[in-house]
C-alpha cells in the first residue's frame, strides 16, 4: 500500500511539476502538443455527472405530484404502475430485505445516495429515449421515487440544494474491498 502510494505521488509530482511545464510547453498544451483546449460550452454539454455533495446538479426543481405524472407517462410501462411490478427493475420497496435470503435491491432499500438516482435517470432513462427529459422532469420523478420509498414527505420539493440532503436507508451500508478474504 505504502509503495503504491509513494509511486503514485511520485508520478503525480513528475506529471504536475515536470511534464507539462517542460521546455516545449506553453500552458495551452502538454509535452506532445496534442489535443486542443476545450471551451466551457463544450465541457458543459457533456459534463452531466452529479456527485454525492450535489456538485453538478443543474438548476430546476420537482415535486411528488409532478413526478407522478412524469412517471406515469415515461416510466410506468417498464417499471410498473407503482415502481414494483416491472418488467424492468423494481424502483420501490425491498426495505429490510438486504440481510435475508432474498434481498430486493432498489433505490429505496440499497442505494446510498439520492444524487445517484438523479444522475442515472438524467443520463440513461427512459431506456428508449435517454437524455430526453428536462431537469425539472428528472427532479420531479426522482422526488416521486423517493416519496414512494418513504424517504421524503408528500409535499417535498427537491432541487440542487435539497436533493443531496435526502438521507438514504443504506447510506452507511457500504464497506471498502477487504479482499483477499478467502484462505
Amino acid at each position: 500500500m505504502f509503495r503504491r502510494q509513494t509511486r503514485f505521488l511520485l508520478l503525480l509530482f513528475v506529471m504536475v511539476a515536470v511534464g507539462p511545464a517542460d521546455s516545449w510547453g506553453t500552458s495551452k498544451s502538454g509535452p506532445f502538443h496534442l489535443g486542443r483546449v476545450a471551451t466551457p460550452d463544450e465541457i458543459q454539454a457533456w459534463d452531466i455527472d452529479v456527485a454525492p455533495d450535489g456538485e453538478g446538479l443543474p438548476a430546476g426543481r420537482g415535486t411528488v405530484k409532478e413526478g407522478a405524472e412524469v412517471y406515469a407517462e415515461h416510466c410506468a410501462s417498464c417499471h410498473g404502475a407503482t415502481g414494483v411490478e416491472g418488467p424492468g427493475p423494481a424502483l420501490v420497496g425491498g426495505q429490510g430485505t438486504l440481510a435475508s435470503e432474498h434481498p430486493v435491491k432498489t433505490a429505496g432499500s440499497y442505494w446510498p445516495y439520492a444524487t445517484t438516482l438523479f444522475d442515472y435517470i438524467y443520463r440513461a432513462m427512459p431506456f428508449v429515449a435517454p437524455q430526453s427529459l428536462t431537469s425539472d422532469q428528472v427532479y420531479a420523478v426522482t422526488t416521486w421515487i423517493l416519496f414512494e420509498n418513504g424517504l421524503v414527505d408528500k409535499d417535498a420539493v427537491l432541487d440542487r440544494e435539497t436533493l443531496p440532503k435526502v438521507r438514504m436507508l443504506h447510506r452507511n451500508g457500504f464497506v471498502p474491498d477487504p479482499r483477499p478474504d478467502v484462505n
Partner: peptide, 25 residues
C-alpha cells in the same frame, strides 16, 4: 462520483446486509 454502476450494481452484498464497494480486482 458514486454512479449507479458502483452503488446499485457491481457491489457485493454480504449476508449481514452490508455491501462491498470498489471490489475492482
Amino acid at each position: 462520483v458514486m454512479t449507479r454502476e458502483e452503488t446499485s450494481k457491481y457491489t457485493d452484498l454480504m449476508t449481514d446486509g452490508t455491501a462491498r464497494q470498489f471490489t475492482f480486482d
